[in-house]
Design a protein around this nucleic acid. Structure first.
Length: 641
RNA sequence: GCCGAUAUAGCUCAGUUUGGUAGAGCGGCUGAUUCGUAAUCAGUAGGUCACCGGUUCAAGUCCGGUUAUCGGCUCCA
């Protein structure tokens, strides 16, 4: 029998008989201790099971159970084990669809008459534990695609048959574990004993292949880790996310409310939330003024004809609310601000010398969202875009985009978002405009990104109907990604609205239009901020910066004086002079996430000072009110960058 | 819109299994207490049990429908 040379990366090479499995080779090549950590290996660039026989000289790249790749394999195998458990418990009444590993775990989609309920988790987990204890091996087999189709058809697994029928490979792999056979690319853990820590999390419905016209399946989500502590940490993190939920904090902090009587997806800003929003808006306006923008205000409704001209009725109609009639003319609520800004543009004649024109507006738009999509502030039916439209000449396009990105990243950073991913979205299926225009504008976006030195990925087909776009997705404190900023080139609307300017040559030319939003939707952005800061906003945007509290009634008068002085200086301060114990007042202020508590007892009253308590429980040395004003103003300036 | 779950006082929740016209804590109000770094004590007022209909002598409780919310799918700022 011929010998082949096998080695582990950077390790000694040894010779084995052809057909030796990875597991057998590893026994000779690495220590026992190390071997226990190896869940699979990379063989010539492909992840592979330990049971695979080797046919040629190979360098093995071990995949450790604790590595990201190893964890993914473990979770994928857990999905299989769960499916086996479900099959054992419920038999052929359940058909399997797909069961991949996902970011934080895995899921498996099943077709079952009755949806699973969380009460069944215990039984399934119990069954899984038995499978783990039985050390059932995963056995890989290769077979011809046609044979696999026959196999799964005989098993009654029609979803697998459908998947197979769409595949192009001649041979496919299946995995057998006990009585369960699954179509799968692999790799998998060698046997079920490798699974130590897992938990089923929730059930949900999901369409077969994500298509709402196809059957609704029942999905079980779960997760698995290589270590018990990791699971615990994950569950703690879920708990943390629940604590930060903007709907919960919004209620507790009195920021906003949504009421049945008003309507789903419509936000009522309560005083503290309204103040927070005003502070954000003020900052936004200041920055735009500094960067050469002018502010516009436009109406909420317009004649239906406007939306015909803009193309919104054709391309965005299903998201627009139906028309209302005013003096026998149809009007519709605006889903976007752009046609209005064009109206402002077309109100006067323009010369090339005026460009670039930068117009911004906090424009409230209304869009129909399906009931199931609504979610707190994150997904609503009426929201305010921090919108802007830039009109410029073709030679200015790239610079303008470059400037927008600059301003964009600066503002995001001030809000505490320094990490982001950038995406370039290209032409979607439904679109307007010529291919030439799409190419030209896509190129301009690309150039600006590259000049700015930003890494970006391409999102094919994700552009808006009127043009390609750059999206910036920020990462919050918990590492979650949110799409807020968007920059879109539009050669379409200038055409439709016959926009023009006089060029150097004295002739009429068509301007280029850029749409952009930085925060996207104020509602959503504030929702993200609430969760990002867990309600404890940076001082410059905190609705309540300080709260002054007395220890006994004897200091009330002094507190009133200091309160008036600070308020006069523009500090957002509240007072708590109730006849309550200091502990009680502190607790309440703490729960309301007040940044600074000013504590006044006899000592402070006599010395003309206040003692400043921070959110973390520490105290600053007593200071005079003027000193506190300086202190707080300085912190605000620093916070705003 | 689809699948599943939930809906009781301003808030957080018990009561639903085994139908007999509602309970707690916090908050509110009143009073006492004047107490230095996360809840002082006592009293008191709050609810057509989401809405509509059905079963029943009797429905918060059982059944049907509607609405909203939650977890997902789809969609998306």
């Amino acid at each position: 029998m011929t010998q082949i040379a096998i080695s582990v990366q950077d390790g000694e090479e040894k010779h084995f008989d052809r057909g030796t499995t990875v597991a057998e080779a590893l026994k000779e090549l690495v220590s026992n201790k190390q071997r226990k950590q190896i869940i699979a290996v990379g063989c010539n660039g492909l992840a592979s099971d330990l049971g695979v026989p080797l046919e040629e000289d190979t360098v093995l790249a071990p995949i450790l159970a604790s590595s990201e790749e190893g964890l993914e394999i473990l979770r994928h195998s857990t999905a299989h084990i769960m499916a086996l458990a479900v099959k054992k418990l419920y038999g052929p009444e359940v058909k399997v669809a797909i069961g991949p590993a996902i970011d934080d775990g895995f899921y498996y989609d099943f077709d079952r008459e009755k949806a699973f309920s969380p009460e069944e988790f215990e039984a399934i987990e119990q069954q899984m534990a038995e499978i783990v204890a039985a050390r059932l091996p995963f056995q890989r087999k290769s077979l011809k695609r046609e044979d696999a189709i026959t196999l799964f058809r005989d098993l009654g697994e029609e979803y697998k048959v459908e998947l197979l029928e769409e595949m192009e490979d001649d041979t496919v792999s299946i995995y057998e574990q006990d009585s369960f056979t699954d179509l799968c690319r692999g790799p998998h853990i060698p046997d079920s004993s490798w699974l130590k820590v897992f938990k089923l999390l929730r059930v949900a419905g999901s369409y077969w292949r994500g298509d709402e016209k196809r059957p609704m399946l029942t999905r079980i989500y779960g997760t698995a880790f290589s270590d018990k502590k990791e699971l615990k940490r994950y569950l703690t993190q879920l708990e943390e996310a629940r604590k930060r939920d903007h709907r919960k904090l919004g209620k507790e902090l009195g920021l906003f409310t949504i009421q049945d009587q008003i309507g789903p997806g419509l936000i009522l800003w309560q005083p503290q939330g309204a103040l927070l929003r005003k502070l954000i808006e003020d900052y936004w306006k200041e920055e735009h003024y500094k960067n050469g923008y002018e502010l516009l205000y436009t109406p909420h409704i317009a004649r239906q004809d406007l939306w015909k001209t803009s193309g919104h009725l054709d391309f965005y109609g299903e998201n627009m609310y139906s028309a209302m009639e005013i003096d026998e003319v149809k009007y519709q609520l605006k889903p976007m601000n752009c046609p209005f800004h064009i109206g402002v543009f077309n109100a006067t004649k323009h010369s090339y010398r005026e460009f670039p024109i930068r117009w911004c507006e906090l424009g409230t738009v209304y869009r129909y969202e399906r009931t199931g999509a609504l979610h707190g502030l994150m997904r609503v039916r009426g929201f305010t875009q921090d919108d802007a439209h830039i009109f410029c000449r073709p030679d200015q396009l790239e610079d303008e985009i470059f400037n927008i990105i600059d301003l964009n990243l600066h503002i995001l950073k001030t809000f505490g978002f320094a990490e982001y991913d950038v995406y370039l979205s290209t032409r979607p299926e439904k679109y307007v405009g010529s291919d030439e225009h799409w190419e030209l504008s896509t190129d301009a976006l690309k150039q600006a990104l590259e000049k700015k030195g930003l890494n970006y990925s391409i999102d094919p087909g994700e552009g808006v109907f009127y043009g390609p776009k750059i999206d910036i997705k920020i990462k919050d404190q918990l590492g979650r990604s949110w799409q807020c900023s968007t920059i879109q080139v539009d050669f379409n609307l200038p055409e439709r609205f016959k926009m023009s300017y006089t060029g150097v040559d004295g002739g009429e030319h068509q301007p280029i239009m850029i749409h952009r939003a930085l925060m996207g939707s104020l509602e959503r952005f504030i929702g993200i901020l609430i969760e990002h800061y867990a309600g404890g906003f940076p001082l410059w945007m905190a609705p309540e910066q300080a709260r002054i509290m007395n220890i006994t009634d004897d200091q009330s008068e002094y507190c009133e004086r200091v309160f008036a002085q600070l308020r006069h200086a523009g500090i957002r301060i509240a007072k708590d002079l109730r006849n309550e114990k200091l502990n009680y007042k502190i607790r309440e202020a703490q729960l309301k996430k007040v940044a600074y508590m000013l504590i006044v007892g006899e000592r402070e009253k006599e010395e003309g000072t206040v003692t400043v308590r921070l959110r973390d429980g520490k105290n600053l040395p007593p200071m005079r009110p003027e000193e506190f004003i300086d202190f707080i103003q300085k912190e605000c300036e620093e916070g705003k960058g």
